[in-house]
C-alpha cells in the first residue's frame, strides 16, 4: 500500500490549561473520503486548524504528500494542495460569485506575472461549470455577500473545487443547508471525489450524512481518538454510542 496522503502522527494541542487534542493520529489514503465525528467540543475543529497551520501544535508531526507540514504557514500548505473550508463560511462578500471563483483559480506554479493577466483571461468556463455544479449558475453575477448562508456555503465549496486541491478538509458542509438540499450535496461531494479525484476529510454532525458519505470514520471524544473504522464498525461501536449519549 502507498503512503497515506495525509498522515497525522500523535499530535497534541492545548490552549492554556484546556487540552483540545491529546496524542491523536489519523491517516487518509489518496482518493478516500474520510469522516471525522465527535460530540461538540471534542477537538475536531482544533485538529483541522492544526493540520492547515492555523496554530502551532505542541507535539507530534503532520505529513502531507510525503512532506512534513507541521511548521509551514497557512498559505504554503494551501499551495501544496491541502485546502479547507470554514465552519463559519468565508467568502469575499463585496465581489460577485464569478469574481470569487476566478480569484480562487490555482496560481501555484506560476509567479506574480500570471496575476497581471486580465481577470477574465482564464477559467471563465470552468468557473461557470462549477457554479452550475453546485447550483449557483443563475446567481453568478450577484454579490457573494448578498447570498443566503447555505448558498455561500455552496459557493465556498465551488471555490475550493476550482482551486484543484489534492485534498479538501470540509468543516460541517451540511450545517445550515436546507435539508432538502442535503442529499444533493452528498451526491456532489461524492462526485467531486470520484470525478475530480479530490481526497476528502469531512467533519460532520449529521450521522446519516457521514455514514452515507465516508469510507472510513474517525471518532474524537474529549480530545482523544476514541475509535476508527468503517461506517458499519463505528455505528456499532459501543464506545461511540456512549460518547454521543453521554454528551447529550
Amino acid at each position: 500500500m502507498d503512503k497515506p496522503l495525509l498522515d497525522v502522527r500523535n499530535i497534541s494541542k492545548a490552549f492554556g490549561g484546556v487540552i483540545a487534542n491529546k496524542n491523536v493520529s489519523l491517516k487518509v489514503e489518496k482518493g478516500q473520503i474520510a469522516g471525522l465525528i465527535g460530540p461538540n467540543g471534542s477537538g475536531k475543529t482544533t485538529m483541522f486548524n492544526s493540520i492547515v497551520g492555523y496554530h502551532p501544535i505542541d507535539a507530534g508531526e503532520i505529513w502531507f504528500n510525503g512532506r512534513e507540514i507541521s511548521r509551514l504557514r497557512v498559505g504554503a500548505i494551501a499551495r501544496m494542495g491541502l485546502l479547507r473550508t470554514f465552519q463559519q463560511t468565508r467568502i469575499y462578500g463585496k465581489m460577485t460569485c464569478m469574481e470569487n471563483m476566478l480569484i480562487s483559480l490555482p496560481d501555484r506554479s506560476s509567479g506574480f506575472a500570471s496575476l497581471l493577466r486580465s481577470r477574465h483571461s482564464a477559467g471563465v468556463r470552468r468557473a461557470k461549470e462549477l457554479l452550475d455544479f453546485v447550483g449557483l449558475y443563475s446567481k453568478r453575477y450577484l454579490y457573494a455577500g448578498d447570498l443566503s448562508f447555505g448558498q455561500q456555503k455552496l459557493l465556498e465549496f465551488a471555490m475550493a473545487l476550482i482551486n484543484e486541491p489534492e485534498m479538501l478538509l470540509l468543516d460541517e458542509p451540511t450545517a445550515g443547508i436546507n435539508p432538502t438540499l442535503i442529499n444533493g450535496l452528498i451526491d456532489r461531494l461524492k462526485r467531486a471525489n470520484k470525478e475530480l479525484g479530490i481526497t476528502l476529510l469531512v467533519i460532520e454532525h449529521n450521522m446519516r450524512v457521514i455514514m452515507n458519505l465516508a469510507d472510513h470514520i474517525y471518532c474524537l471524544a474529549h480530545g482523544e481518538m476514541l475509535a476508527e473504522g468503517s461506517p458499519e464498525d463505528i455505528r456499532n461501536d459501543p464506545r461511540v454510542i456512549d460518547a454521543y449519549l453521554g454528551a447529550h
Partner: peptide, 17 residues
C-alpha cells in the same frame, strides 16, 4: 481581484493559497 480578496477576507485569501 487578489487585492480585493485581501480587503474582503484576508484569512480566506491566505487559506486559499
Amino acid at each position: 481581484l487578489a487585492i480585493n480578496a485581501i480587503r474582503d477576507d484576508e484569512d480566506k485569501a491566505e487559506a486559499m493559497g
